[in-house]
């Protein structure tokens, strides 16, 4: 994987490289360099399969990490591209024109992390949550317990009866 990194580095300004396994590496890429790197990997290095696109919330560092995981199915190697976004301005260029399936991932990231991908088809449509008006729920500062306490009424625990006694009471109330 380091070979690929060195090769890419001659063409693009790249950030940190992590050699996770023989067939998996992660490379940090600048936001504006992502598209040319993706094109190069797809067209010249055989990374034609977009495995997943997801985000990690590094709230302490005030940034989001977008991970684009690509796979070369012929050589069976994977590369993950990390793009760091400012948490205050989470906007990223769409890549649905390169992989149409990315539109679904981008729609989910907009809903769950509040990361916007302008011009991505249906990006503003509801994906899983309908009529959500709170903080995007997969952000680290969204408190599920607090949301649940504020949104739903408290439900008392269920009463447990002894089946024999209970049925006796129901069927023969006079004898009890």
């Amino acid at each position: 994987m380091r070979e690929l990194y060195e090769k890419l580095k001659t063409r693009f300004p790249l950030g940190e490289f992590t050699d996770q396994r023989d067939n998996l590496g992660f490379i940090t890429v600048d936001k504006d360099q992502l598209r040319p790197v993706l094109y190069h990997l797809r067209d010249h290095e055989g990374f034609s399969h977009l495995v997943l696109l997801t985000a990690v919330d590094w709230i302490e560092e005030d940034r989001f990490q977008l991970t684009y995981l690509l796979s070369n199915r012929t050589r069976s190697v994977d590369v993950g591209l990390r793009v760091m976004l400012d948490r205050g301005e989470p906007v990223m260029e769409t890549i649905h024109d390169i992989w149409p399936t990315a539109a679904t991932y981008q729609c989910e990231l907009r809903e769950m992390f509040g990361i916007d991908f302008p011009d991505s088809p249906g990006v503003m449509d509801d994906f899983i949550l309908e009529g959500w008006d709170d903080l995007p729920p997969y952000r680290r500062d969204f408190d599920t317990k607090k949301y649940s306490d504020e949104t739903y009424a408290h439900r008392e625990g269920r009463v447990t009866h002894d089946p024999a006694e209970y049925m006796k009471k129901q069927l023969y109330p006079d004898e009890v």
Partner: peptide, 16 residues
């Protein structure tokens, strides 16, 4: 960070 994949009955299943 890592990604692990396997071939399930429906295709590629993975955990990042």
């Amino acid at each position: 960070e890592t990604y692990i994949r396997g071939e399930c009955s429906r295709g590629e299943y993975g955990f990042y």
